[in-house]
Simulated scan of single mutants.
Amino acid sequence: MNNEKVYSMNFSKIYPLLVSKAQKKGRTLEEVTQVITWLTGYTAEEIEKAAVQP
């Protein structure tokens, strides 16, 4: 099992997992984006750009 730390992972690897987990709990993509913007200070566009980068 790979014990890679979350803080050393690429955001593009974590983002789909966050969205999937939130949707399973009845949340929307917009709510996930809102929380991430609140926590990080990034705009929705910056999050989207970071989520698709390899």
Score class of each variant (00 low, 15 high):
residue 22 A to L: 11
residue 13 K to C: 03
residue 21 K to W: 06
residue 8 S to A: 13
residue 42 Y to C: 08
residue 7 Y to Q: 10
residue 38 W to M: 15
residue 21 K to L: 15
residue 21 K to H: 14
residue 39 L to S: 11
residue 23 Q to D: 11
residue 33 T to H: 06
residue 45 E to H: 10
residue 40 T to L: 14
residue 38 W to F: 14
residue 36 I to H: 02
residue 25 K to E: 13
residue 16 P to F: 00
residue 43 T to I: 14
residue 53 Q to P: 00
residue 46 E to F: 01
residue 18 L to T: 15
residue 13 K to V: 05
residue 19 V to T: 14
residue 15 Y to E: 11
residue 31 E to Y: 10
residue 39 L to R: 12
residue 22 A to I: 03
residue 41 G to H: 13
residue 45 E to F: 06
residue 10 N to I: 00
residue 25 K to H: 13
residue 3 N to H: 13
residue 41 G to R: 06
residue 5 K to Y: 11
residue 51 A to W: 00
residue 38 W to N: 15
residue 3 N to I: 10
residue 4 E to N: 08
residue 11 F to P: 03
residue 40 T to M: 14
residue 6 V to L: 14
residue 38 W to K: 15
residue 19 V to L: 15
residue 49 K to G: 02
residue 47 I to S: 01
residue 46 E to H: 00
residue 52 V to L: 02
residue 52 V to I: 05
residue 12 S to A: 10
residue 9 M to T: 02
residue 33 T to W: 04
residue 34 Q to H: 13
residue 27 R to H: 07
residue 17 L to R: 03
residue 9 M to V: 00
residue 41 G to M: 11
residue 35 V to S: 06
residue 1 M to G: 08
residue 29 L to Y: 08
residue 7 Y to A: 05
residue 21 K to V: 15
residue 46 E to Q: 06
residue 44 A to G: 06
residue 2 N to C: 04
residue 51 A to E: 00
residue 43 T to F: 09
residue 4 E to L: 05
residue 5 K to A: 07
residue 43 T to L: 07
residue 40 T to Q: 15
residue 6 V to E: 06
residue 28 T to H: 12
residue 37 T to E: 15
residue 35 V to P: 00
residue 8 S to H: 08
residue 19 V to F: 09
residue 28 T to Y: 10
residue 49 K to M: 12
residue 48 E to M: 06
residue 43 T to G: 06
residue 49 K to E: 13
residue 40 T to R: 09
residue 48 E to D: 08
residue 13 K to W: 07
residue 26 G to L: 11
